[in-house]
Design a protein around this nucleic acid. Sequence first.
DNA 1: GTTACTGCAAAGCTTTTGCATCCCT
DNA 2: AGGGATGCAAAAGCTTTGCAGTAAC
Lengths: 126, 126
Amino acid sequence: MTPQRMAILQFLEGNIDHPSAEDIFNAVKKQYPMISFATVYNTIEKLKSIDGILELNIDTSRRRYDPNIKAHHHLICNSCGKIVDIQTDFKLTIPAHISRTFEIEGNQVEFYGTCHDCRKKKVIKR
Amino acid sequence: MTPQRMAILQFLEGNIDHPSAEDIFNAVKKQYPMISFATVYNTIEKLKSIDGILELNIDTSRRRYDPNIKAHHHLICNSCGKIVDIQTDFKLTIPAHISRTFEIEGNQVEFYGTCHDCRKKKVIKR
DNA sequence: GTTACTGCAAAGCTTTTGCATCCCT
DNA sequence: AGGGATGCAAAAGCTTTGCAGTAAC
């Protein structure tokens, strides 16, 4: 456990912004200006391997990370891209002919829509 | 409508493999060896803008495309990465305090598990 | 001639890797 | 000394962009 790792962990702890590697890098850089991406990616890799964070599939342009490792879902705003956690547990059943051949271990749901701020602003959907 | 675009459309038509840009490139290359990525990405962009294909958020390492634009969901094998469509329509309701502020327009579900082939092979989960 | 599309190449962005250095036992 | 982590820089992979040439109208 090094100071850089501590700083990364502190930034991630309780973070609900689904940060990217660059977000982590920039945040830790304030405290440790010499931090390198190698360290960030090394630490991410370590955390993933011990199930300390999840790598999210919700942004095609970059990988995002989530310290909330409990199964949960996301609301994604089509206008501003904001991503909000939703902890509801959905009991989803799939057709029997599929579950016979594909053993389901879990599910993840993304809801797409428009967040409160963007509805007020009437931002045009990109 | 150019020959290259025709070839891309033909490759995508009915394709259930969720190909990446490179997959498209390689497929069309057999018929048009001079095809360039610019053309592939241009065509993808056009198709997206007219809702001819969907860009999928199911692979962190590359963008994948799906000519099936009807709302549908995916089964993803944790062992081999195979992605299978599932057309079931899930009626998901979220807590009222959230739906009051976030206007839901749609949802997409990913199921994670182990496919038939991998269960037979007893492949270790990566 | 104008417009749109192609192919090539370069650039951009994100992620990975090689390596020298440093710190801690 | 040896193992592990760091920082730097280069490389790699995917995507975007600039530009000149070409085809269609």
